[in-house]
Simulated assay, not measured.
Amino acid sequence: MGFDGLRSRRAGWVAAVLVVVATVTATDASAGDRFDSRLDAIAAHGVLTVCSTGDYKPFSYRDSGGNWSGVDVDMAGDLAKQLGVKLRFHQSTWAGIGTDVGAKCDVGMGGVSITLARARTAFFTQPYLRDGKTPITRCENVDKYQTLQQIDQPGVRVIVNPGGTNEQFDTANLHKAAIVRYPDNNTIFDALLAGRADLMITDATETRYQAGQHPGQLCAVHPDQPFTFAQKAYLTPRGDVVFQQWVDQWLNIALNDGTFQRFSASALG
């Protein structure tokens, strides 16, 4: 075979290989566009599933009839609207919400605090609220529970909902006081009012809200100067940068165009 024939055959081989590569690449790209990101899967399925605990007013509450309400419930509705899909909720727990995202739902919402432990299993969006742990007690006891030293004394009962950052804070900082684990976060403040505990340490946002719901009965203790620094954000599945970035941009717009303020004004001020 002459040089021209060999060159022609090689050119044919190269062309054939390029066709195969192009076909595989196009197929992979098509599959990737459809399946690599939850953003596309949600659009294809037409449903956004949101994990929330449903026991944390004013962010997320599920009543006995299964109806959801709260600031982050409204935000979830706007997120679904912007995606052009229906909204569905999955009731999660504080201990499990970090791992439920991606396995049982698309997003975690409902006053979720940013922690390094949760960041191991899921991505966080940008923060939308600054917060921190501070006490709430019956109003006549405000002066008694200003500091951790005052709180961490024998005979003091600190009530807490198990599984979340409140319990983690109490376990790490209280060694003499009695930690009263109370499983129903929806009625925990009723238990505090009834005298089943002396105080609760929770997010400053929640102390302000609950004090507003029980004026003259429950009082937030220095909510503007909490014991800790914390921020709240939304959870998205770990590894899905495309979806995380989309949700993050949606949140950025909502924080700056009045959407978040419209939903949160009455509850958060």
Rank of each mutant, 00 (worst) to 15 (best):
N256Y: 08
S60G: 13
N161F: 11
K81H: 08
T202I: 12
D72F: 06
G2F: 03
Y209R: 02
I151S: 08
Y56F: 15
T25Q: 08
T236N: 07
A197R: 11
N67G: 01
D74P: 00
I151H: 09
F243P: 04
I114Y: 08
N185F: 06
S37K: 01
G84K: 01
F59G: 09
D190F: 10
G108K: 09
D40S: 12
L235K: 06
N185K: 10
K57I: 04
A211G: 12
A265H: 09
I42V: 10
Y145A: 07
D240L: 05
T99S: 11
D100E: 15
F229L: 11
I188M: 05
S92D: 12
S266Y: 04
D198C: 00
V158I: 09
G195R: 13
A15H: 02
R10W: 13
A103I: 09
Y56N: 15
R38V: 04
A29I: 03
V19D: 03
L174F: 14
P237Y: 00
A26S: 11
S69R: 13
D248M: 13
P215Y: 13
Y145T: 01
A204E: 01
V247I: 13
G46D: 04
A43W: 00
L199A: 04
D203N: 10
N67M: 02
N256R: 14
V156I: 11
K81A: 12
T115E: 03
V21M: 13
A230G: 11
D36Q: 09
R7Q: 13
Y234E: 05
A43G: 04
Q153W: 06
A204D: 02
N67R: 12
R181T: 10
V20R: 14
R7W: 11
